[in-house]
Design a protein around this nucleic acid. Structure first.
Lengths: 190, 190
DNA sequence: ACCTGAACACCGTTCAAGT
DNA sequence: ACCTGAACACCGTTCAAGT
């Protein structure tokens, strides 16, 4: 026995982290495993199924925070943002089975079916948009740095009173925006 | 002058309707236009840009319903569902520019920035999931029909007291579910 | 059970060259 | 300005065959 299904999913997540969703091809996953592309089809019927299994693993990190729907959504967001393109992977897979996932059931027990659906769609969508923006900003910052890095580096910038990088500011604002939207929905549920 | 940018977008929407998002390749759009694939790159820098232009056209149909945020979201949903895979196209393109679209500005004028973001993310996500489910159900019904069509057809089924098809029931339930989620968010905004 | 090797039918994008 | 023709570097998936 050379590779299990779990090995395939792990390899796929490694490729996702290294190359992003666009670069996460069946051929590259096979190469990561040291195997021919066709070998993957012994473990998985198609790429879509592999992506769904990856989504399950990404989201499995949000297992705690049982009782509180707000904490649960925040944990879900954190789990998605912790993996490169994680929100895209989860959101795409989720569209296929909303109404049938274990996550939704657990949330539905707390706030009802409509509330759970609303919270999840918002959480997935906001995380997806956040990750897209942060990624684009990081790329832009990289390009600016390549064009001409700031003299003195971060230490000098901090001494000049710029204690937070623009990226950190954007990240904090997006997190706050997420929280406000969450509170709007939770208020509507009462 | 053979083809304009508008012609390219129109051709792409025709291919989308006929083949779905998966079949909407640059090569097929070019064929629809009677042109070599490379000719498209005179009008558009890449496929992603073309998809964004398609999204704008799909959503342009929701121009009316100015004053009422609820009506606006319903019109948006209708516009997306009216085109095959329309919700996917719009949602994907939207992730790239949430916070920068004209649609969001108009909604923000009515309910504030956080409210607009929340409503849009929910509307896009729900429409995407709805379209996915209805499409899968339609495929399933087709397969069932191929396996053995109901004797007598719809007329006999209706006479037997089954006045609505399962597809129509699912569609109505999804529309109702969408409305309830919308009302949760709108209640939270007050 | 798990994998190889080879093939099929595609992709998006670039680029010199034409009119 | 708009397009052709040819090429480059890839895809997902299938299938007979090996161990």
């Amino acid at each position: 026995m050379r590779n299990s299904l779990a090995d395939v999913v792990s390899a796929a997540l490694r490729v996702l982290e290294a190359q992003g969703l666009e670069g996460c091809s069946m051929r590259r996953v096979a190469a990561e495993l040291g195997v021919q592309p066709s070998a993957l089809y012994h473990h998985v019927p198609d790429k879509q199924t592999l992506l769904a299994l990856m989504a399950d693993r990404i989201v499995a990190g949000a297992g705690a925070a049982e009782g509180d729907p707000r904490r649960f959504c925040v944990a879900l967001r954190d789990a998605m943002l912790a993996v490169r393109d994680g929100a895209d992977v989860v959101a795409t897979a989720a569209a296929f089975r909303l109404g049938a996932s274990e996550i939704e059931e657990r949330l539905a027990a707390l706030v009802g079916a409509d509330g759970a659906r609303t919270l999840l769609l918002y959480t997935f969508g906001h995380a997806q948009s956040t990750q897209t923006h942060l990624q684009a900003a990081a790329l832009g910052a990289l390009a600016a740095f390549a064009a001409g890095p700031p003299a003195g580096g971060p230490a000098v910038a901090a001494a000049a009173g710029q204690t937070a990088t623009p990226a950190a500011v954007a990240e904090a604002e997006l997190e706050a925006s997420f929280g406000r939207g969450l509170d709007i929905i939770l208020a509507g549920l009462r």
